[in-house]
Design a protein around this nucleic acid. Structure first.
Length: 467
DNA sequence: CCTCACACGC
């Protein structure tokens, strides 16, 4: 049933639903839709369903779907995707089997395929893929979805096999983007760059890179440290893309420039990026300034973020923002600022300090020689101190004159840590370097006896800092 | 209105 009135209003509501972010906006728009008597509009209901589904709110999504007076293939697909996003592949399968026109809707097959991939059931995904090939409901999207499934499962060999089977006539730029992202995720940025070069070389006439392609290859350059090639890609972006950059690409470029020490170029990207910076961009800037020893500027950027957010669009600092910010204070020795920002986290910004934030503060206080205050903070913290926090304390306690009691205290807390925690196990290696053999023996035999001895961890890499 | 790709802190 199409509404007789408000056709323009309907279009405006639809645009608002597809463009909104944040759950409060969604709920408000849902109310507006109901109040305007548009709840039975399949298109609007589907748009709302998609929002809820992406947020993992399966209940409201299911209710919208159930209350639709009639359901088209798009509504079914949206519901399938919502189930998939919540890991409910079996429920998606049952809904798919109930679909009246599924043989003529390729998107449904692709959605089901993706549901299985997300649930980690690659075998079922492959079965759906092969069936869609036989049923002639497949398209390049089906191939890309299957390739992505293998990539996300870390099976790059299987992904590569499909990539080769596709041939240049079937592959599109998303196939390339998917493979590049897969290699990056597996920790092989060189292979991602090789893919990019192949795209540029072989598919020059037919395929154009997208902003995603450029963002991915720039990230790969950052990871291998090939800043020359990353810079070259940046300079030819306009020519490659034909359009200007987007927020994601700007973010990748800023990250690269910060990590190679080109603070000015990073800030230039920031100030010329299209639209208002989102949370990711602010976090990158704050972290980037911090890692380049520009703590004061990082704090200033944070203040800017909070100020501008009040006016235009609500970008609220999150947990990552404060890790970046407090680390920046720590690296630049900004004790007073760090303390103030830490104190205002929950009351002013609604972000509850977690173990990682306490870790930053302990680091900050220890570096400034305020060992007593650091111990006091760990003693009173509402979160269970983790191996990083205690390790930091122990590290600094040893080198300070009044650190004996702090050292003993931290040592006792460390012994209480869960041996199954990789970082906690790593701490026993730290003990080894400190000649605390008695503790090492006790902890190791406990770990081996319980059959839960983990492998070496990244924490080991921190040991050379101990002197 | 739906199905495939990308970005941040230790």
């Amino acid at each position: 049933m199409q509404p007789r009135t408000l056709p323009r209003g309907r279009a405006a509501v639809l645009r608002a639903v597809t463009g909104c972010r944040g759950r409060r906006e969604e709920q408000a728009l849902h109310c507006v839709v109901c109040k305007l008597g548009l709840a039975s509009d399949v298109v609007l209901a589907t748009a709302l369903l998609v929002r809820y589904g992406k947020r993992g709110l399966l209940g409201p999504a299911q209710r919208l779907f159930d209350e639709m007076p009639r359901r088209d293939a798009v509504a079914f697909n949206a519901m399938l995707a919502a189930l998939g996003a919540s890991g409910r592949a079996a429920d998606a399968r049952r809904l798919f089997d109930r679909m009246p026109e599924r043989d003529r809707t390729p998107a449904s097959w692709n959605t089901l395929l993706t549901c299985y991939c997300r649930a980690g059931d690659l075998a079922s995904a492959r079965t759906v893929f092969e069936a869609s090939l036989r049923a002639a409901t497949s398209s390049v999207v089906s191939w890309n979805a299957m390739v992505d499934g293998y990539c996300k499962a870390g099976r790059m060999d299987a992904a590569r096999e499909l990539f080769d089977r596709m041939g240049s006539s079937l592959r599109d730029v998303i196939t390339y983007n998917t493979m590049m992202a897969g290699y990056l995720r597996r920790g092989d940025p060189a292979a991602a760059i090789a893919m990019f070069r192949r795209l540029a070389r072989e598919e020059e006439q037919t395929l154009r890179p997208t902003a995603v392609t450029i963002a991915t290859v720039v990230t790969a350059c950052t990871q291998v440290g090939d800043f020359a090639f990353g810079r070259a890609v940046h300079l030819s972006t306009r020519q490659l893309l034909g359009t200007s950059t987007d927020a994601v690409l700007s973010n990748a470029l800023m990250d690269m420039y910060f990590k190679c020490g080109s603070v000015d170029r990073a800030l230039e990207v920031f100030s010329t990026m299209p639209g208002a910076p989102n949370l990711f961009c602010w976090n990158t800037v704050i972290a980037g300034l911090g890692r380049n020893g520009r703590g004061e500027d990082a704090v200033r950027a944070f203040r800017d973020m909070v100020q501008t957010s009040k006016k235009i669009n609500a970008v609220k600092p999150d947990s990552v923002t404060f890790v970046a910010l407090l680390s920046a204070c720590s690296h630049s020795g900004l004790v007073r600022e760090g303390r103030e920002l830490f104190a205002e986290m929950l009351p002013a910004h609604g972000v509850a300090p977690g173990a990682e934030h306490y870790g930053c503060m302990v680091d900050l206080l220890c570096r400034a020689g305020l060992l007593g205050e650091a111990v006091q903070l760990v003693r009173t913290m509402p979160v269970r101190p983790n191996a990083k926090v205690l390790g930091c304390l122990l590290l600094h306690a040893r080198s300070s004159g009044d650190g004996v009691t702090a050292s003993e205290w931290a040592a006792r807390r460390i012994v209480e840590l869960d041996v199954r925690d990789g970082a906690a196990y790593g701490l026993s290696n730290l003990y080894a370097s400190l000649q605390r053999w008695d503790h090492v023996e006790r902890r190791r035999s406990a770990a081996v006896a319980s059959g839960k001895e983990p492998g070496r961890t990244s924490y080991d890499a921190q040991i050379p800092h101990v002197r």
